[in-house]
C-alpha cells in the first residue's frame, strides 16, 4: 500500500464521487492527496459539500411535518374516486382538448405520412400514459376480447406483442381516431410503472420502411411500416433500450 501514486488526474466526477461516498479506500486516498496539492479543487469540493448541507438545511424540515391524511389514506387502501380524482379527470380532459388542438396542426396529410404517424403516436402516448386510473379502455385481463375488437375496428388481424421478455407487461389498449381512421394503442409498463405505448394503424399505401427515430422533449419513438401496418413505439427510455423493445415488437409482428 505504499504506492498510491496515481498518475491520472482527479476529475470533476471523482470529486463528486468522493463527496458522495462512492469511492473505495484507494480512490479516497487518491482524491485526498490530489486536493491537498490543488487548492482550487479543494475549494470546489468544499463548495459542493456546503451545497449538500444547504439542501438538507432547506428541505429536511419537510420530513418533520405531519403527513397529510390524504397521503396516509392513499397508502393504506385503494380508494374510490375522490374529489381530487375528479379534478384530475377533468384536467385530463382539458389536456386532451389542448392536445387535440395541438394535433390539428398536422392533420393535413403531408407528403410524409409516417412522420404524422409518429406525431400522433407521441401525442396519444403523452395523453394516456399520464392517466393514473384510466390509462386503457380495455385491460389485458380481457386480452382476447381486446385483440379481437381492435382487429375488427382496424380491419386487419392484429397481434399483441408479448414484451415481457424485454421487461414490459401489457396493461391493455384503446381505440383512437387517426385522421378519420381507426388506430390502436397498446400500453405496457415495467415494474416501476414506466409506461410504453405501441401505436398501430393500417397503412394501405404502405411499403416497408426501416426503423426511424424521433425524440421530442423527453419522449422518444421508433416508428416503421411493416406489411399492412404502421407502428410507432413511444416511451421515455434511452434510445438503445427503446430499440431493444422495438426489435421485439418487430419480430413479433405479422410476417
Amino acid at each position: 500500500m505504499s504506492d498510491t501514486g496515481a498518475h491520472r488526474p482527479v476529475d470533476e466526477t471523482m470529486l463528486h464521487a468522493f463527496l458522495d461516498g462512492e469511492l473505495d479506500a484507494a480512490g479516497r486516498v487518491e482524491v485526498e492527496q490530489w486536493v491537498a496539492r490543488h487548492p482550487d479543487d479543494a475549494a470546489r469540493l468544499a463548495a459542493f459539500g456546503r451545497q449538500k448541507a444547504a439542501l438538507h438545511a432547506a428541505f429536511d424540515r419537510v420530513t418533520e411535518e405531519t403527513v397529510p391524511t390524504r397521503l396516509l389514506q392513499a397508502a393504506r387502501r385503494r380508494r374510490q374516486a375522490t374529489p381530487w380524482a375528479r379534478i384530475a379527470a377533468a384536467l385530463a380532459l382539458l389536456v386532451a382538448g389542448a392536445a387535440a388542438g395541438w394535433f390539428g396542426r398536422d392533420i393535413a396529410t403531408g407528403p410524409n405520412r409516417s412522420v404524422t404517424l409518429a406525431e400522433r403516436a407521441i401525442g396519444a402516448h403523452v395523453i394516456y400514459t399520464a392517466e393514473v386510473r384510466h390509462p386503457v379502455e380495455v385491460t389485458s385481463a380481457e386480452e382476447e376480447h381486446l385483440v379481437r375488437w381492435l382487429s375488427r375496428r382496424l380491419g386487419q388481424p392484429l397481434k399483441l406483442p408479448d414484451l415481457r421478455p424485454v421487461g414490459f407487461r401489457c396493461m391493455g389498449g384503446r381505440l383512437l381516431p387517426d385522421d378519420g381512421r381507426p388506430a390502436a394503442q397498446f400500453m405496457y409498463e415495467d415494474e416501476t410503472g414506466r409506461r410504453l405505448t405501441l401505436y398501430l394503424r393500417v397503412m394501405p399505401e404502405g411499403r416497408d420502411t426501416a426503423f426511424r427515430f424521433v425524440h421530442e422533449r423527453d419522449v422518444s419513438a421508433f416508428y416503421w411500416i411493416d406489411g399492412k401496418f404502421g407502428y410507432a413505439l413511444t416511451a421515455n427510455l434511452p434510445r438503445d433500450r427503446l430499440l431493444q423493445v422495438a426489435t421485439a415488437v418487430y419480430e413479433a409482428g405479422p410476417k
Partner: peptide, 13 residues
C-alpha cells in the same frame, strides 16, 4: 415516471 408524464402534459399545454 409520474413527474415526467405530468411535466410533459404541462409542457404540451
Amino acid at each position: 415516471n409520474l413527474f415526467i408524464s405530468q411535466r410533459r402534459t404541462q409542457a404540451r399545454r
